[in-house]
Simulated assay, not measured.
Amino acid sequence: MSESPVNDVLVRFRNVQKSYDGESLIVKDLNLDIRKGEFLTLLGPSGSGKTTSLMMLAGFETPTSGEILLGDRSLNRVPAHRRNIGMVFQNYALFPHMTVAENLAFPLKVRKLDKTDIAERVKRALSMVQLDAFAHRYPGQMSGGQQQRVALARALVFEPQLVLMDEPLGALDKQLREHMQIEIKHLHEKLGVTVVYVTHDQSEALTMSDRVAVFHQGEIQQIDTPQALYETPRNAFVANFIGENNRLSGRLEKREGPECVVRLDNGESVRAMAVHDAAPGQPVSLSVRPERISLNATTPVNRFSGRVREFIYLGDHVRIRLEACGNAAFIVKQPIASLDPELGVGDVVTLGWNIEHARALDPVAV
């Protein structure tokens, strides 16, 4: 993992481990630098360690070993309420007996700000989330999306240097969720605050983040920009977890610089980028994204034939399931505009892809 310049880093996890039973580690030897002003998402399946890592940073969990630093100060013995960190949860955690304005004023009163300052900051925070007219409403009188905005404003009202968000949009419907993703992203750009965001929703992570850390079994598998994670996954877990992926099994036949030749289980050969450090004869898995595959391909290498088994219509594009390369569920994504209207189930087509769009990765345990 690349080191950041010291003055650019706000949070450091140093060899952090967490175990609840003294035997199995939920978080294993976590080393992570979080940069000032960045939007970092911790992404992974349930039980991967992402939420536990966030809760240790918030102060609601204690590391079994290792150290967490905020700036140059160790947080290990600092209680949660003294960390000056904003938190937004999935369940909003608003006080139902307080108005919106009173909810926003609460963290400021705890910090003993004077009344004029509190009123000014509450007004500014309401305006920031476009809820100026809702100051005197109670949470129960508002929609889920409005309550989430109040929770967001409350996390930002005392101007923390760091805001942690744990699945904050999980309870919202798809359309509102997508709208709030963009709202939060714009707020982050405007305020320049550092955000650490936890989700298991990969499209949310790709949409919102400057960088994404992909967790699996308590360890970061890869931390990168959304584009780098999607286009250049370092291992089979990341390739399969982020976006849709055609996975083919085979053995490395030979390496040629950064490229290699892989012999598939059905005997066909594929040229790919040699990402996994395998020796000739060893098993590898190939990753090819469905949108990188051409039908009626004219590529000079990696040309195969496939039989169409199913069309799945998705509005702007079609997912076509084929039998190809020894795989009965090989997926090709085609924009509607470029789909051949004559193509039908049972037809045999040529398909192909460029060498740089196939990655030879570690073998996947079955």
Rank of each mutant, 00 (worst) to 15 (best):
F158E: 08
F158M: 05
F158S: 00
F158V: 02
E159G: 03
E159H: 14
E159L: 12
E159W: 11
P160S: 06
Q161W: 01
Q161N: 11
Q161L: 05
Q161E: 14
L162A: 03
L162M: 04
L162S: 06
L162N: 02
V163Q: 01
V163H: 02
V163S: 00
V163N: 02
V163E: 02
V163T: 03
L164A: 11
L164P: 02
L164I: 01
L164T: 03
M165C: 12
M165P: 09
M165L: 14
M165Y: 11
D166Y: 05
D166T: 01
D166K: 09
D166E: 03
D166G: 02
E167A: 14
E167Y: 15
P168A: 04
P168L: 03
P168W: 06
P168Y: 07
P168V: 08
P168C: 07
L169P: 02
L169H: 02
L169E: 02
L169I: 00
G170Y: 11
G170I: 07
G170S: 15
G170F: 13
G170Q: 00
A171H: 07
A171Y: 03
A171S: 13
A171Q: 11
L172D: 05
D173H: 01
D173P: 05
D173L: 05
D173Q: 05
D173Y: 06
K174G: 07
K174D: 00
Q175C: 00
L176W: 07
L176Y: 08
L176N: 04
L176C: 08
L176A: 05
L176S: 04
R177F: 13
R177P: 09
R177S: 13
E178C: 03
E178G: 00
E178K: 12
E178N: 13
E178L: 14
E178V: 08
E178H: 10
H179M: 07
H179L: 00
M180G: 03
M180W: 09
Q181H: 10
Q181V: 14
Q181F: 12
Q181R: 15
Q181A: 09
Q181E: 13
I182P: 00
I182H: 07
E183V: 10
E183N: 04
E183M: 04
E183T: 06
E183H: 03
E183I: 01
I184H: 03
I184D: 06
I184C: 08
K185D: 06
H186Q: 14
H186S: 09
H186W: 06
H186D: 12
H186C: 01
L187T: 11
L187E: 09
L187K: 10
H188I: 04
H188Y: 12
H188Q: 14
E189A: 13
E189Q: 15
K190D: 09
K190S: 06
K190I: 06
K190F: 05
K190R: 15
L191S: 05
L191A: 08
L191R: 02
G192M: 05
G192Y: 06
G192W: 01
V193Y: 09
V193N: 11
V193I: 15
V193H: 08
V193K: 08
V193A: 08
V193T: 15
V193W: 12
V193Q: 11
T194W: 12
T194Y: 13
T194M: 07
V195F: 15
V195W: 04
V195N: 01
V196G: 11
V196A: 10
Y197G: 01
Y197H: 15
Y197N: 05
Y197C: 06
V198D: 01
V198T: 14
